[in-house]
């Protein structure tokens, strides 16, 4: 995904800029013509809270400003820069691209998450980018529960030029994954992407089902999966903590993808999650088109969060 075509960055920026617009307006309104006194700091803290950073992280970031800038006149630009730096420092630790080891064939990527977070769309986008990069890709349509999920993935498969292994409705997902791995090996595919049914992390039976998929996969290929991506919706609030923790503990997550950052949701909970779980963030989604899946860049995310342009 590094071979960005012209216009992609503009697309990303416009997507993220919308996310940041409200926050930016707020910061500007607070500090343009005033001292950074206690009231101003409280309002800054409030603004971070409205970006879903959570109470603890918001307090912490404002505490930094209080230590260094208390009662000083400060421009909007300075405040933004300081806040962005704070966020970027936390996020930089988790900015890690998803690297595909070419020695592993097929490189198996399992994609999980709660319902409606954007797993199928993310897989479609990933498949497209890998095929464009000259890789041979097989997709396992492991969401055998949701009506027409298989058809949705097949359309993405056609768009991307990737073969989709699908079973009957309500078929056993674990069995299907086994078949898909078999197919990927026979085709000597480079990458196997596995879609799974959306599930709320507090449903023990559905989590057990996912663990079974994992067991069957490991039986067929002990080193697999080589990556487990948890897809988070940017509109999610503090429940993202529970999602990350439960999926990590029960399935083992190697990295995050945050989708739907083209709305007004800022996905600030990612900062809190980075600080707490040290979980790599690979991609962000900023639109419905295939090229709208972008590598996660900590500085850009942080800057966009507070409305800073380059």
């Amino acid at each position: 995904m590094s071979d960005a075509k012209p216009g992609l960055f503009a697309r990303l920026k416009s997507g993220l800029a919308r996310s940041a617009q409200r926050l930016t307006d707020g910061i500007a309104a607070i500090v343009t013509r005033r001292k950074l006194d206690e009231a101003a700091l409280t309002e800054l803290e409030d603004l971070l809270i409205t970006a879903d950073l959570g109470l603890a992280v918001s307090k912490e970031m404002v505490a930094g400003l209080r230590r260094t800038r208390f009662n000083q006149e400060a421009s909007t630009e300075e405040i933004r820069t300081t806040l962005a730096e704070g966020a970027a420092n936390i996020l930089r630790r988790v900015e890690k691209p998803l690297t595909i080891d070419p020695a592993i064939k097929p490189f198996v990527i399992l994609v999980i998450g709660v319902n409606g977070s954007g797993k199928t769309t993310t897989i479609g986008k990933l498949a497209k980018s890998y095929v464009d990069a000259g890789k041979k890709v097989v997709i396992a349509a492991g969401d055998t529960f949701r009506a027409a999920a298989v058809e949705q993935l097949k359309i993405w498969g056609e768009r991307a030029g990737a073969f989709v292994v699908a079973g009957a409705a309500n078929a056993d997902a674990a069995g299907l994954v086994f078949d898909a791995l078999d197919r990927a090996r026979k085709d000597s595919a480079d990458i196997l992407l596995i879609d799974t049914a959306g599930r709320l992390h507090n449903k023990s039976d559905l989590m057990a089902e996912l663990q079974k998929v994992l067991r069957v996969l490991k039986k067929a290929e002990p080193t697999a999966p080589h990556a487990v991506l948890l897809v988070l919706d940017a509109t999610v609030g503090q429940n993202a903590h529970a999602q990350v923790q439960t999926f990590r503990d029960m399935i083992g997550v190697t990295g995050l993808v945050m989708t739907k950052l083209d709305g007004t949701a800022k996905g600030g909970v990612l900062v809190a999650i980075a600080e707490k779980y040290d979980m790599p963030v690979h991609y962000i989604g900023v639109g419905e088109a295939a090229e709208d899946l972008r590598p996660f860049v900590a500085v850009d995310f942080a800057k966009s969060l507070v409305g800073l342009e380059d």
Binding site: V114, G116, D233, A234, T235, V236, A265, V269
Partner: peptide, 12 residues
């Protein structure tokens, strides 16, 4: 709307 929604609920 999703019960998991965060602060953005007001905007949407």
């Amino acid at each position: 709307a999703d019960a998991l929604t965060g602060q953005d609920a007001v905007n949407l």
